[in-house]
Amino acid sequence: MKLKLSRRAKIALMIFVGIYIAVGVVNVTFLSRENMSEAFKNIANRWVVKLPFGKGILNRINPFTLIMTWTIMIVIIVAAAKFRKFRLVPDRKQSAIESLLQYVYEVVEGSIPDERFVRPTFYIACTLFVFVAFSNVLGGAVPGVSLSVNSQGDVEKVILFSDLWFSPTADINTNASLAVFVLIISHAFAIKAKGFKAWLKAWFEPNPIMFPMNVVGELAKPISHSLRLFGNVAGGAMLVYMLSYMVKYLFMPVVLWGFFGLFIGLVQALVFTVLAVAYISAALS
């Protein structure tokens, strides 16, 4: 394969490689003073703040998740407000958004049996996809602000631009709440579509003995649904941190961010969306 680059692209590429090597050399001299166990000590800890009310696990929150969730929501809302008026002749950004939405719509239309529920499911699926994909890519491919936290949950220092953003989907609470939303929505749609009696009867199919199995099967859905996303994003972030520490941030991060951030992040966002649609359609049929 022969690459043909324009003059501008060549100059931009040279500047990028120059900045990359300069930052890498600075990082090698700056980061290599820390030894390895020092650097990996706080890798699995999260910032914890105790609330004045509540008991047990209910009175602890991770404020960084809240901050990142609200930031991402505000960014998405601002972007959506900017693209609110769709023109008849699309430009490049608008056609990219249109093809994304059309892809999700085709997935939803192909799997939802009831015509009345295609559009609501499409809204839910699009919301999930945009939020999860945005936060996965932010937490996997964009260097930014993250925290180093000791084992008691207090912030030791703020890391600026040498690690990735903390993604809200790397916190099990975000994923679990999204998965529980999907579970509740699917059963609400089922009650609305089939009526309460038919919905109640579906728990005792094919035989009343199978009732506990149906309950366990329904409860296992949000658990596997949330843990899949959490494991991918959190494990990917940890692996990127460890491997890029081992090579002192010189060469690996761009490759790793491309794989764990863009590829795995987008595939997992798509899997999360498609599974949500599949759960809703399984409850409807």
Binding site: I43, L227, R228, N232, A234, G235, V267, Q268, V271, V274
Partner: peptide, 25 residues
């Protein structure tokens, strides 16, 4: 193919999570 492979990966991720929990938490 990518979708179903991502679903297959889940059990591997469970063991990754458990080993991280064992090691670090």
């Amino acid at each position: 193919m990518l979708l179903s492979q991502a679903v297959c990966e889940t059990t591997g991720l469970y063991s990754l999570l458990i080993s991280i929990l064992i090691l670090l938490v």
